Amino acid sequence: MSAHSFETLAIHAGQEPDPTTGAVVPPLHLSSTFKQDGVGGLRGGYEYARSGNPTRTALEECLAALEGGSRAFAFASGLAAEDTLLRSVARPGAHVLLPGDAYGGSYRLIAGVLSNWGITHTSVDLADLDAVRAAIRPETAVVWCETPTNPLLGIADIAALAGIAHDAGALLVVDNTFASPYLQQPLTLGADVVVHSTTKYVGGHSDVVGGALVVNDQTLAEKIGYHQNAVGAVAGPFDSWLTLRGIKTLAVRMERHCDNAERIVEVLSSNPAIEKILYPGLPDHPGHEVAAKQMRRFGGMVGIHLRGGIDTALAVVAKTKIFTLAESLGGVESLIEHPGKMTHQSVAGSPLEVPDDLVRLSVGIENVDDLIGDLLQALE
């Protein structure tokens, strides 16, 4: 189905009607094991659900199609996907180059867990290509990219980073969670691996936790597949089914997320309580031109620096009524949070520490006038 449009792939890739019943929705296969027709005689290639499950296969085929990849792997969480990937491609003594404002969970995994395994890391502004080149070491195995970054909405040039990483013999890994495959397809720009927390925009309904890796290279796919089975942090069948159901509306949801975010940014830009708005769609955003080149639209995530510092920021997040004070992002409902004390508390005191005047919005798909009114009353 690779020749079809994104919207069609989201509904049909990996999701052919059930051959036995004709059901148009892929069945939920809850079995932990599968009958063999003699020793080694597998029906459809399935033997044990950690190694493979038909519902998970449907999700993986759909994700691969949406990202323009050849293989996808679904995991129990985004961090499970990241851990499995890094154990697949890095060895003790390897070096990982991180964004200067990486997601706190990714930083904690690499700095707090994999460092005990001998993995080192350096943080650098990925928008500064000279700084990236200078930070590369002979032992650099991975350049880890987020674009847009979480939570400062920084933009990195994926194609340029791919060239730098490949010249150094390293892999470029792009966390595409903030953009979703609808807005951005890093593999087509030269990335080696795409990472998703499918909990976010891909699932889209704040009711399932999951992660994914997508690749094109067959050798890399075999490594990841081996480690996915060996480590075992796989997506369960019901989680896979829920995520696949969410994917069907990804395109229409992303359009509404973007519409609402753009309106909110426009209205709030002149609000006296706000020091600065972080949004790649703003012409004065330092990554605006790169984002316009590699993204379909600019997304539904907005960062706000508030005058008055942390006290004002905490007061604002406590006053909203439609924006729910909660971690996570990318669901149909709007969320608000204080990264410094919530999602990014794990980087406090590190070079990646988040400004304490920052509030992060995950703009949902509610009526935009209702969302604007809610934010304005909270900012009063």
Rank of each mutant, 00 (worst) to 15 (best):
G330E: 00
V317L: 08
A273L: 07
V290E: 01
G309D: 09
H288Q: 06
E289A: 14
R245A: 15
P283Q: 10
R307T: 15
A313S: 14
R245L: 14
V302M: 13
V267W: 13
L329T: 03
D284A: 09
R253I: 02
V317A: 08
P339A: 14
E327C: 14
H285W: 08
V267T: 10
A318T: 06
V290F: 09
G340W: 04
G308D: 11
T320G: 06
R263P: 00
L250S: 08
R256A: 10
V290D: 05
L306F: 12
L325C: 14
E337K: 08
V316G: 13
G303S: 12
A326L: 07
M295V: 04
P339V: 04
H344K: 00
I322D: 01
D259W: 09
L314M: 15
N260V: 01
T343F: 01
A318H: 09
R307Q: 09
L335D: 04
A326W: 01
I264S: 06
C258R: 04
G299T: 15
I247E: 01
N260A: 14
A261Y: 09
E262A: 11
M342Y: 00
E255T: 15
G246D: 11
R256F: 00
L329S: 05
G308I: 04
S328A: 13
I264Y: 00
R245T: 12
N271A: 10
M301R: 12
H338R: 05
L282D: 00
P283C: 09
K293I: 10
M342V: 03
L250I: 13
D284H: 13
G308L: 07
A318C: 06
L282C: 05
H344A: 04
T324W: 10
V265W: 05
A273P: 02
I304L: 14
I277S: 01
V252S: 15
T320W: 04
Q294W: 12
H305K: 15
P280A: 04
I274C: 01
G308E: 15
R256D: 11
L325K: 12
K276L: 10
D311T: 12
L329R: 10
N271V: 11
S270E: 13
I277D: 04
A261M: 10
H305G: 08
P272W: 05
H344Q: 05
A318N: 14
K319Y: 02
G309F: 03
